[in-house]
Design a protein around this nucleic acid. Structure first.
Lengths: 267, 267
DNA sequence: CGGGGGTTTGACGAACGTCAATCGGGGTGG
DNA sequence: CCACCCCGATTGACGTTCGTCAAACCCCCG
């Protein structure tokens, strides 16, 4: 733990009944300002932050169905995910939701829905949108920001499809780690060469389409190859260049699991 | 071939230089009318249909970058797909685009883009949207229709993620076939128990994350189990109930590939 | 000292990819 | 009409990847 970032660490518990603000939210608020909330919502935002909500790990964030006043739910701290369960218990994580991400726009229709679930302790705010006609048009700057965010989210979904459909296990893992690093770096929650990974390996498994055991082996392969380090919930990217090549499928040498026999001890 | 539907059949060729309208577009136009084009664009739609465009298989449908006038591109006949290529040639098909689907809203940013490619001969129309401020607000009915279509498309993407991430090969195949049947049935291009499948098996492979060989074996497993029939580009759903159960992961018996030894001849 | 949750490891089998040969139908030139 | 060819579907053989089961391990905590 190298900085003040304590995002989702285990000891980060609700104090008694009043949860402690468990993260540095300044970078996120700054990101929101950049969006277009600047010219339109100066202290509305501050008031929203004052009324922020807290969620326990594994709690569902879909608590309001189409509220009367148009509003924007934003993840301020902690990790969440969009997921769906199959009847036999299998879980698929569609995407990770990181601080600064927008939580709106879920489709909650019928049995083929997507649920937003907290993976760590989570803090959110509700920013009421100006009551324009059809909730758009008043602050076109903001509407544009929402559209951009939505489009980025779509791009991430497509990246996820590439991983699941056409990448090998190591490639998928490398790509996902790079995505998380990039997104966390963008909101000031990661360093140039490391980022916090506050989820268990079976959560990564449900995001990558692996089994938990295979997540473990894949991570160890990346460690053995000196591409990453991983301990205490912190991932260090030792060789980002090779990681990027690996994720692109353009690595000269193929990484081999199951080291045949030798190369285990001093030899 | 039991009806007038000739969607994407091989003999369906461009005549000389003037392509022949190669499908019955009435159901699609009717679907468009239901959307809200009824109250707003009575003969604008007809004029658009008159100026319809044709594309060869494997041609790219992304021919205009953010046109000045807001417009809606709609697939009238034929199959297309959204896809992305990796540098080494691997292809992933994100989604199939069937008659009646909207082609807009692609993200064409940087290297992580999605391309729309024709899989068969394709016919499209461009419906100019009323020039409202920010291209919305004028026909909120139509804007709503677009939003609904977008949300359905998102749901399909999530179904695709379930297939790739958490379903077995047979489950994925059954689920995809059911999705295609349902969507084609909705626009009148399929029967209650059959639908046209005018793509090669390697195209299915790129959509399911399989190899072409494995697509073949999976299809044969479904045929051997008397769940479907498949020939001449037509899929017949013999036992829809069991197919649905299979896609849900709630099948009592597990389908076995690689029939051990017996059960090949008369026994 | 015991216990529980999460990680790591090993062993084994099933699912899936790759390579390569074969088949089958439609088109084409002789 | 027939030999030839090309493309796509099919099949077999074989190796790799990945899931499953189960045990060991590790750390923190009571």
């Amino acid at each position: 733990m190298t900085s003040g970032v304590t995002l989702g660490v285990k000891k980060e518990v609700v104090a008694g009944g009043l949860p402690t603000p468990h993260a540095n939210i300044e970078p996120i608020v700054r990101k929101l300002r950049q969006w277009g909330l600047s010219g339109i919502e100066p202290q509305t935002l501050k008031r929203s932050v004052a009324k922020r909500k807290f969620y326990e790990p594994n709690s569902i964030l879909d608590d309001e169905f189409m509220p009367s006043s148009p509003r924007l739910k934003i993840l301020l701290s902690g990790w969440a995910c969009r997921q769906r369960l199959m009847t036999d218990g299998r879980r698929m994580i569609f995407s990770f939701l990181l601080p600064g991400d927008i939580l709106g726009g879920e489709l909650k229709c019928g049995p083929r829905l997507a649920t937003v679930v907290a993976l760590t302790h989570v803090m959110t705010i509700d920013v009421p949108l100006p009551p324009g006609p059809e909730n758009i048009g008043v602050s076109s700057e903001l509407a544009n920001a929402i559209a951009v965010a939505k489009s980025e989210s779509d791009g991430l979904l497509h990246d996820q499809l590439m991983r699941l459909g056409r990448m090998s296990g190591t490639e998928s893992m490398a790509d996902l780690l790079l995505e998380l690093h990039r997104r966390l770096l963008a909101v000031g929650l990661a360093g140039e060469r490391w980022f916090p990974l506050p989820v268990r390996q079976d959560v990564l498994a449900d995001a990558l389409g692996f089994s938990a055991v295979h997540v473990n082996r894949t991570l160890q392969l990346l460690r053995r190859e000196k591409l990453i380090e991983y301990s205490e919930g912190i991932v260090s990217l030792i060789n980002i260049n090779r990681l990027v090549c690996l994720a692109n499928g353009t690595l000269p040498e193929a990484l081999r699991g199951h080291v045949p026999f030798v190369a285990r001890g001093t030899a």
